[in-house]
């Protein structure tokens, strides 16, 4: 009956990892308020391991829930592992999203990539998964596919 399932609602009502890190090793922003969703994810890295992550999100319930889930998923992972996190995994861990809302988690996976990209740039690191990655690639194309 409800718009979202219990897991999504829990991550929306009690989001984990909200806020900003004091000295982030990487910051990624994706989306824009014009599109209705904008997400910032920051990471703290120790060695190759993500030890902490925080998010700030302007957006709907599923955007906030997927930010919470995505940051929870990458904490404790290595950079290589975090780069493998897909939208599908975020959605699956949330127990599914309404089809029209799927673009909200696309945002989370891009924000993670952008945060790691920022970290890599600052530290002269190279990761195969970021080969040719453009953090400023058109962010709006997800929206068009979902037209009813």
């Amino acid at each position: 009956m409800a718009l979202y399932n219990d897991i999504v609602m829990d991550h929306f009502l009690n989001p984990k990892n909200v806020g900003e890190l004091e000295n982030p090793d990487g910051t990624g922003v994706y989306g824009s308020p014009v599109c209705g969703d904008m997400m910032q994810i920051q990471i703290k890295v120790d060695g190759e391991k993500i030890t902490d992550a925080k998010f700030k999100t302007f957006g709907c319930g599923s955007a906030i829930a997927s930010s919470s889930m995505a940051t929870s998923m990458i904490i404790g992972k290595t950079i290589e592992e975090a780069l493998e996190v897909t939208n599908k995994e975020i959605i699956d861990n949330l127990g599914g999203l309404p089809p029209v809302k799927v673009h909200c988690s696309v945002l989370a996976d891009k924000a993670i990539k952008n945060a790691i990209y920022d970290y890599a740039q600052k530290n002269g690191k190279h990761y195969a998964a970021l080969e040719g990655y453009d953090p400023n690639a058109d962010e709006d194309d997800d929206h068009g596919d979902i037209e009813e």
Partner: peptide
């Protein structure tokens, strides 16, 4: 300003309050 309507609607709903929003995220057409 600075927040999104569907989020407001969902949280109000948690308190038994029913409203509507002009936000794209709340519509099936986006």
């Amino acid at each position: 300003k600075y927040i999104e309507g569907e989020s407001i609607l969902l949280l109000l709903n948690q308190f038994g309050i029913s409203v509507s929003t002009g936000s794209a995220c709340s519509s099936t057409s986006l």
